[in-house]
Design a protein around this nucleic acid. Structure first.
Lengths: 342, 342
DNA sequence: CTGAAAGCGCTAACAT
DNA sequence: ATGTTAGCGCTTTCAG
């Protein structure tokens, strides 16, 4: 199982071994200017020899800087997984580390956030749309906070990919392939679904397809998508769309399943576009064209926003409505979309 | 975005407001015996009034106890997600909290583990089989360590679900349904696949089905499963199995896809069992019978093992081979298995 | 350029 | 039962 902690070497030990004071050793190890040549070498040598690793907790207690970003996420979300990975990378470029916290049976979102605060994070990243607005504002009041994937409120900045642009990309792509009867499979009640639905309408109008606007009930899950597909396939032939844009990949995949079992080929008989570019969409067997929210872009923007807030001066807490950072999503073209059949 | 940290109240502040010493306040806040009645009340009141939250770092620096369990996991694994959730719950029951660390572009497994050690975790939980044996042994030497899902080595205890029992459950279930031609879809090279393959053989023999043992090449991914299915469907009818047990769910799902597209009904035409009871297996549209490694059971055993190691005396570092805790997996019956067709 | 010394916020002996 | 006093391991003035 493992031995009890075998007394880690401390800074004093390194200093002693290097024949300098702890002050000098500390400076050297953090690459601070001051100590020179001889000192640096012997300290580094000693540290390496002893296998020294600074005690993070002691450092931060003394320095009042933790270099920690707290991330509140949902372990079971693949999208969050990608974001976390990207955030870690981005954080690294700013000399920051991540502390992860997740909602579990014993801890709701507020509790998970408190845990992060207890670690004295310098910034908070909230993934996902489930935290209550009031809780968000509260967090924002205690610590620089960014919420990813939705608009910010009050002191909290939102970092998100534009749903309007996302749907524009999807509709453009399909229109270019000759589709006109492009239906949109709606999501669950909420601001994200609203934005996407609106984006769909707008994009259709841009293409002069006002008359073809066709919004069908859907949802978040595979089975919601399956129901939607049944509904659509139940229509008379002429009224069936030639392409479907779904609220998200899961919903698209559920629909795809039913459609294929109906003997309709994809994309020959029907084109499908999902949203999120999630791992299942990328499977060879699924191969779903999808809108990517560009997790790497979101992560970079998030960390940059946060870093700016503690490096520089406090961010202008301007009008409570325009504190968002909006990036563009990307269209990932795969095999589920093709030219409309003659 | 959020305000700069508004000077958290410290223990002194609480003590002062309550009119007691920091020592008393400290004891009260941690629910330690000593202070009584009057003191307790006023301290709690003061703490609540000031919104006091102890500084975790300072506490642990002083107490040399972090009450932290470090967990090294793969963010993109749904199975790990379940384990993390269950671990958190189990940790809570022992008064412990989790620190999560994951492999990313900038940090390999060793780096992620170092990060955990930097947080002064009292115990380490390694999920997943990818950490090198030598690295594992190294970690085990520095901190009580448990590896979940595979056998331990040297000082590291393994906590795992028995693959032998798992395959027994699967074969039993199918045999009870009348199946005899039960094929096993093999996994990738490695100890897990070896154990499952062996379990399959053994279970078949138990049922007197030695002659039916049928191991086909497979893999980890959906597309591996798809290839396997193609191979099996390419056989002459008589030689086709009536049931398939796959190395894991992903592989099972890939196979299922191909089989269904071949016009074969599941389970009427063929029964399928997966392994891991992963979220996709539970989808209504997939509904895959699967072997669950019982994440909750694994988590409980893991935390208990670790907790024992720092509460009690050092664990007997017995023979380096028998340091495993093995639990029983569970069979989760869904719609992908049924009686063999007459 | 380097060392001595004073904390960071808390806990734990040791006194009282 | 409560208060006083050292530290935990590090950073950081401030002298030398």
């Amino acid at each position: 199982m493992g031995s009890p902690p075998p007394a880690r070497p401390r800074l004093v030990d390194v200093a002693q071994a290097a024949g300098v004071s702890t002050a000098t050793a500390s400076l050297v190890l953090r690459g601070r200017p001051g100590p020179s040549g001889a000192a640096r070498e012997s300290v580094h040598a000693a540290a390496a020899r002893l296998g020294y690793r600074p005690d993070r907790n002691a450092s931060l207690l003394a320095a009042r800087r933790t270099h920690l970003l707290g991330v509140l996420f949902d372990v079971s979300s693949p999208f969050h997984a990608e974001l976390v990975t990207a955030l870690d990378e981005a954080a690294g470029e700013h000399g920051l580390d991540l502390v992860l916290s997740t909602v579990t049976g014993r801890r709701d979102e507020a509790g998970a956030a408190d845990l992060l605060l207890d670690f004295r994070c310098e910034g908070l990243v909230i993934l996902g749309p489930t935290l209550k607005r009031s809780a968000l504002v509260d967090l924002g009041g205690r610590c620089p906070t960014v919420v990813v994937g939705r608009s910010g409120t009050g002191p909290v900045t939102g970092v998100l990919a534009s749903d309007r642009v996302g749907l524009e990309l999807a509709v453009d792509h399909l229109a270019r392939l000759g589709h006109r009867q492009i239906a949109y499979v709606d999501g669950p009640p909420g601001s994200i679904a609203t934005a996407r639905r609106r984006g769909y309408r707008q994009a259709m109008r841009h293409h002069g397809l006002d008359g073809e606007i066709d919004i069908v009930a859907g949802g978040v899950t595979e089975s919601a998508g399956a129901s939607t597909a049944h509904a659509v396939l139940g229509r008379p032939r002429r009224q069936r769309p030639t392409a479907l844009i779904a609220y998200n990949d899961r919903c698209a995949i559920g629909a795809r399943d039913v459609i294929m079992r109906h003997g309709i080929e994809i994309p020959e008989g029907l084109s499908i576009i999902g949203y999120d570019d999630s791992p299942p969409a990328r499977l060879g067997t699924v191969d779903l064209t999808s809108i990517s929210q560009d997790p790497v872009g979101l992560a970079r923007a998030t960390v940059a926003t946060l870093a700016r807030s503690f490096d520089g001066e406090a961010v202008a807490q301007g009008s409570s409505r325009h504190t968002d950072v909006v990036i563009s999503p990307r269209l990932v073209i795969r095999g589920s979309t093709g030219p409309v059949s003659a």
